[in-house]
Simulated scan of single mutants.
Amino acid sequence: MDDISVWCLALVCLAACCLIMAAAWLWAHKIKNASVVDMFWSYNFPVIAILLFLLAPGWETRRILICGMVIIAGMRLGTHLGRRILSHLDEEEGRYQQLRKEWAPNAERTFFFFFQAQAVSNVILAVPFFVILMNPAVGVNAFEWIGFFLWFISVSFEAMADRQLAEFKKDPANKGKVCDKGLWYYSRHPNYFFEWLMWVSYFIFALGSPYGWLGVISPTIILYLLLKVTGIPATEEQSLRSKGDAFRAYQKSTSVFVPWFKKS
């Protein structure tokens, strides 16, 4: 692997993501809604994929395959989040309202650095893509096929979970209730689980390239963030504030993360 080329690619991608997040922060500051950061975080991965497709020296077919995967997944998630956020743009999501309170009176300045930290996380999480796209070897190997099929399964089920939740929320009769339909019957966060599984698939795909073991950083970071930081803890705290006892009962009967058998 050409270390200089990798670092140059990383800097180009970082600059692009930071500029996008700076523009996103300006918009968020204007409308007083930091929720938009989630949408742009997702869209940054397709941006990275396009830059790497154009600039990285790897085998063209492999570049098409992995960049196509990243673009499809990032655009799907970003658009799903965008629809939700834009549908109530005048109302900041509960998680960010809470951060705004905690960071007062310097919330806007802190949000700027928060947005930039998201840009940095985009590039760090893209490590498997850098590894894969620097590989000049011709031919798709077993690790790459396994990674592709696991990616297809994880993205399909994440989309299913998102669709089930969106349809549940559309029904006015479900206002204040907890979604326990479909995949949500077995797990409180099936969308997060399959999002993590998608990053596992990128790691497996990367194992077919030199230095592919470096790709483990992505699913490891994602798992930590989902379980301990911005994923499940923040989401469940907000659900407890908004749904109270109904969500407490749901917590007792379901798996927190992995879709599994329903608890008795």
Results as ranks from 00 to 15, higher is better:
Glu108Phe: 02
Phe115Met: 03
Asn106Pro: 00
Leu227Glu: 00
Gly208Ala: 10
Leu11Glu: 09
Ala234Arg: 08
Tyr96Arg: 12
Ala234Pro: 04
Ile64Ala: 14
Leu207Ser: 07
Pro136Ala: 05
Pro128Gly: 15
Asn33Ile: 07
Phe257Gln: 10
Gly78Glu: 02
Ile64Trp: 15
Trp196Tyr: 13
Phe143Met: 14
Lys228Val: 00
Arg109Asp: 06
Ala56Arg: 04
Tyr224Gln: 06
Asp162Thr: 06
Trp184Met: 10
Phe157Trp: 13
Phe112Asn: 07
Ala34Phe: 06
Val6Phe: 14
Ser255Val: 00
Arg241Glu: 11
Phe148Ala: 06
Phe113Cys: 13
Lys263Asn: 05
Gly94Gln: 12
His189Met: 11
Ile232Gln: 04
Val123Lys: 13
Asp162Ser: 06
Leu125Gln: 14
Thr110Cys: 09
Leu11Lys: 10
Leu52Asp: 00
Phe157Leu: 15
Asn141His: 11
Ser154Phe: 01
Cys17Trp: 03
Gly176Arg: 07
Asn106Val: 02
Gly208Ile: 03
Ala142Pro: 00
Phe53Asp: 00
Ile48Thr: 15
His189Val: 05
Phe114Gln: 09
Ala10Pro: 12
Tyr185Pro: 00
Phe257Arg: 11
Thr79Asp: 04
Ala15His: 09
Arg188Leu: 10
Lys32Gly: 04
Val200Glu: 01
Tyr96Thr: 02
Asp171Phe: 09
Leu227Val: 05
Val120Asp: 10
Ile85Cys: 07
Ala159Val: 02
Gly215Ala: 12
Cys13Ser: 15
Phe193Pro: 14
Ala73Pro: 00
Ala161Asp: 08
Arg100Ile: 00
Val6Tyr: 11
Trp145Leu: 14
Ala246Phe: 05
Cys8Ile: 12
Ala119Met: 08
Leu54Val: 12
Leu197Trp: 02
Ala246Lys: 15
Arg62Glu: 00
Phe40Pro: 00
Leu214Ser: 10
Ala249Leu: 15
Pro46Gln: 03
Asn174Cys: 01
Ala173Trp: 01
Lys169Ile: 10
Trp7Met: 13
Ala10Cys: 04
Thr220Leu: 15
Ala173Phe: 01
Arg83Phe: 13
Ile124Thr: 12
Glu92Trp: 10
Asp2Pro: 08
Asn191Phe: 04
Phe111His: 06
Leu19Thr: 14
Ile124Asp: 06
Gly182Cys: 09
Gly147Gln: 11
Cys179Ile: 05
Trp196Val: 08
Cys179Pro: 05
Arg100Pro: 01
Ser187Lys: 13
Asn33Leu: 04
Glu167Phe: 10
Tyr43Gly: 07
Cys13Gln: 13
Ile153Thr: 03
Met21Lys: 15
Leu54Tyr: 03
Ile72Arg: 10
Glu91Ser: 12
Gly94Trp: 02
Ala16Asp: 03
Leu19Gly: 14
Glu60Gln: 14
Pro57His: 08
Ala117Lys: 13
Ala107Gly: 01
Gly58Tyr: 02
Met160His: 09
Ala104Asn: 10
Thr220Pro: 02
Ser42His: 08
Val47Thr: 12
Ser156His: 11
Tyr96Gly: 05
Phe114Glu: 07
Pro136Asp: 03
